[in-house]
């Protein structure tokens, strides 16, 4: 299972020289195995996915954790959507009030975007996902709602060669006492449990988080503690704050390394990072 990180930035893309090392594109991760391809979130990093052939039925499965703009803004620029030979499956969170098509249609319509959903020329299939379990080719996917404003899913992608947990927008510490150490009461813990790799929200420093409780994101320290509680084998910190320069990010990371002690390896996610499980 090959995993490629195409976007690690939270909220809004950045293009400054100061964020060039880790990258300024918003959330997007490509997962490939046995000729099948998944795309986790469609942030601006999606523009770096090469849409060439070679995949089974020219099929791409796009799994959206939620529909905040930084997670869907790359969709309209994903070339296979405009290719009649492509088969695109979009899996996104269900809602009691509006269909996934209706909600995505807000983006795929003027004035936000010049092309309507109905004008996409690919073979398009939409799937509404809840606390669900489903298969895509060689992948077994589990999804469940996690703590973040609006219907938001986390994903657990299991392949015979490894398990990836993906929770890029997540605030499990929301509450009076922060993270609850009983994992039954820990949002998304079934998804992350003993995963080979966890990609987790780490937008804020602990100091910043104090002023941003309820915004739907995690601190670097909470992400680490969450990984420890769920027993993951490796953690990648992602959804970096768009205002944080590479230098500031590395400074915060060094501080984390100096002040905490965990048994599992962890690192900052960056654009272009390729991992094989």
């Amino acid at each position: 299972m090959n995993i490629t990180i195409h976007g690690v930035r939270g909220s809004i893309p950045t293009t400054t020289l100061e964020t060039k090392k880790y990258g300024g594109n918003t959330s997007c991760v490509e997962v490939e195995a046995d000729g099948w391809r998944l795309v986790l979130d469609a942030g601006s990093g999606m523009q770096h996915i090469h849409a060439g052939n070679g995949f089974r039925n020219n099929r791409v499965d796009i799994l959206l954790t939620h529909l905040h703009i930084d997670h869907i803004q790359g969709l309209g620029f994903f070339k296979p959507l405009f290719n009649p030979e492509s088969e695109i499956h979009i899996w996104g969170p269900a809602s009691k009030t509006q269909s996934l098509r209706a909600r995505l249609g807000r983006y795929f319509s003027p004035p936000l975007f010049p092309v309507y959903f109905r004008n996409l020329t690919c073979k398009l299939v939409l799937h509404e996902v809840d606390d669900s379990s489903f298969a895509i080719g060689p992948f077994h996917i589990e999804s469940c709602h996690i703590m973040h404003p609006g219907p938001t899913l986390g994903f657990r992608v299991r392949h015979q060669r490894g398990t990836l947990a993906y929770l890029p927008d997540h605030e499990p510490a929301l509450g009076r006492d922060g993270l609850l150490h009983d994992v039954k009461w820990l949002s998304g813990s079934d998804l992350a449990k003993e995963a080979d790799l966890l990609l987790h929200d780490a937008q804020y420093t602990p100091e910043e988080y104090k002023d941003r409780v309820g915004w739907g994101h995690s601190s670097l320290t909470d992400a680490l503690e969450y990984a420890a509680l769920t027993g993951v084998k490796k953690l990648l910190l992602t959804h970096h704050d768009p205002l944080r320069s590479d230098e500031e990010l590395e400074k915060a990371f060094r501080h984390l390394q100096e002040t905490t002690s965990y048994q599992f390896p962890y690192a900052l996610a960056y654009e272009g990072l390729a991992i094989q499980l």
Partner: peptide
């Protein structure tokens, strides 16, 4: 098995 997010949020409230 973890509880549903709705139960967790009710507990936190």
């Amino acid at each position: 098995m973890a509880y549903a997010i709705e139960l967790i949020l009710n507990r936190q409230i």
